[in-house]
């Protein structure tokens, strides 16, 4: 992940930015270093904005939420715990959670059901694949998603990229709750093994 973070920062940020790892930058940010936060922004803004946009599918709202997330990372850098995961994992976990909170609060359940009704269970994978733009990550994730069963893949994509709860996913896919719970877990485990996540 760390190497990828560097790679992404080189893709999106000015040259030479990635001389420090995100972890080293966060240590400086935790001491109130705004310049270090500027560098961290180059590493994290693309992934954060990307995941928020994927869930919310609205540019103005996504910009707002991405801003909230980045400011939250600044505020809480003092409490970043390296043993719980890399900076990139931390940032994306916060970003995804905020996006999901927003999508759940913003839309009435009727809206969501309507949206769900339009979703053809077979389609999310293709749709996601087409929209994915981070080249480095995209190819690997694409390959590994193909290794999942259809139900695992659909459940994972609906939950992660659409922000549905597993109950909603179960309704959408017409599968029992217990099955969806299990598929989310074993689907992610298969992804983990395929991606070589330690």
């Amino acid at each position: 992940m760390r190497d990828r973070a560097r790679a992404v920062s080189q893709l999106h940020g000015p040259a030479g930015v990635a001389t420090l790892t995100p972890e080293e930058l966060v240590q400086q940010v935790a001491r109130g270093d705004e310049a270090a936060f500027g560098q961290l922004y180059e590493v994290l803004a693309g992934p954060i904005y990307g995941v928020v946009l994927r869930v919310l599918r609205d540019q103005a709202q996504s910009e707002e939420v991405a801003q909230e997330v980045l400011v939250e990372l600044w505020r809480t850098a003092t409490r970043y715990a390296p043993d719980k995961g890399s900076v990139l994992t931390w940032a994306l976990t916060v970003a995804h959670r905020r996006a999901v909170d927003r999508v759940r609060s913003a839309q009435s359940s009727a809206d969501r059901e309507d949206r769900a009704g339009r979703l053809d269970a077979g389609r999310p994978f293709d749709e996601v694949s087409e929209q994915v733009t981070a080249r480095l990550e995209r190819e690997q994730v694409r390959i590994c998603l193909k290794a999942l069963t259809d139900l695992q893949r659909e459940a994972v994509l609906l939950a992660y990229y659409r922000g549905y709860t597993y109950r909603e996913v179960a309704e959408l896919l017409g599968s029992p709750l217990g099955t969806v719970k299990t598929r989310l877990r074993d689907g992610l485990i298969r992804l983990r093994d395929c991606l070589g996540v330690a």
Binding site: V8, G85, L88, Y160, L191
Partner: peptide, 15 residues
């Protein structure tokens, strides 16, 4: 969570 973060990375785009 680290695995899910890869799904997030795959969605990275220019802000």
């Amino acid at each position: 969570e680290r695995t899910a973060a890869h799904l997030g990375m795959a969605a990275a785009t220019v802000p």
